[in-house]
Amino acid sequence: MKDFVITADSNCDLLPEYIKEKAIGIIPHYYDINGVTYGDELNLTPKEFYDKMRAGVMPTTMASNPAVIRETFQSYLDKGLDVLHISFSSALSGGHSNVAAGARELCEENQEAKIVVLDSLNVSLGEGLVVMKAVQLKEAGMGIDEVAAWIEENKLKFCVQFTVDDLFHLQRGGRVSKMTAIVGSMINVKPILVVNKDGALVPGGTVRGRKKSLSTIVNRMETQMGNHKNGNNPICIVHGDAAEDAAYIAELIKERLHINNIMINTISPSIGAHSGPGAIGICYLGEER
């Protein structure tokens, strides 16, 4: 059985040490601040990025670069490896179509090349959890086609509950109206967002107050996990430079569900540009979305 490598994009928000340990290939997504493009060799720390947003800077984002995609895939093909790529949701970025096009071109040029591109229909560590499962299945001895088939069959079981601290970032991205953002901010409304079956981030309700929004996404996660609460699957918490709130959620999960397999990471800038400072998400294996 031919060996293969697992690749993803930088929006998967996996911890750098995990990426290194498991040799995950990462294709960057990009963001622009005041005419400077970041995301490859040049990058900001999460603190620097979110502090700029707090100061009023509005970054723009760009999907993966076709030339970088080809170069990345070709480097693995040159080593005799097949490639399994898991992408950020096609409903939220052009990155998936860019990768699919690059893979198709390379396979047309080289009939022995095999690049399988899967749409995670997920975001941040929701996508990252899919990558981690693929790694687990590969290490258990599955081939590329078996892993791909499992992911396609089960990817809608990877769920996300999300809340943001500032409605104006959602308004800028067209998720809510300007009037909703103004009124909602005045009365301290916090939206709950979910990733639906199409991979889009959609409204899931509203609550009053930050603490209430955090406890609400934990409550909803507990309900949606169903029988998966009894497993040892990781739960991932992502945040837009809100480490204290992420730690608070982690403690809630430990107390309520007695689960200690928790991963915490910051939201990558190309997602954080839309969700803003203070955004918090929980990603986990649950029942169907």
Rank of each mutant, 00 (worst) to 15 (best):
M58E: 06
D166C: 08
M186T: 12
L92C: 05
M132I: 08
S177G: 15
Q171H: 09
S124I: 07
A55W: 03
V57A: 04
G95S: 12
T180R: 02
N122M: 11
A140H: 06
Q161K: 15
E153V: 01
L167R: 00
G174Q: 06
S97N: 10
Q161G: 06
L125T: 15
V99W: 12
P59A: 12
N110M: 08
Y76M: 03
A140W: 01
V83W: 07
S124D: 14
I69W: 09
F88T: 06
S93D: 13
L81M: 13
L137I: 00
M53H: 04
N110D: 14
F88D: 02
M132E: 14
T180A: 11
G95M: 08
L106R: 03
I69M: 03
L129T: 13
S124C: 11
V83S: 13
H96T: 10
V164I: 09
M62G: 06
M62Y: 11
G56D: 08
L170N: 03
Q171F: 05
T72D: 02
A134D: 02
T72Y: 09
E152C: 01
K79D: 03
R175T: 06
M132G: 10
R54W: 10
T163P: 15
R70N: 07
K79R: 06
A134M: 12
I69R: 11
M179P: 07
L118V: 13
M179F: 13
S89A: 12
A113L: 13
E108I: 03
R54S: 15
L121D: 02
S93F: 07
K157E: 10
V116A: 10
S93G: 06
T163H: 07
S64C: 13
D165L: 03
L92M: 11
P59Y: 06
A100W: 09
V99G: 05
P59K: 00
Q136M: 08
A148Q: 00
T180S: 14
Q74G: 01
I144L: 09
G80E: 03
G102I: 06
M142E: 11
R172M: 05
P66D: 06
G128I: 02
E109Q: 15
S177H: 13
E146D: 05
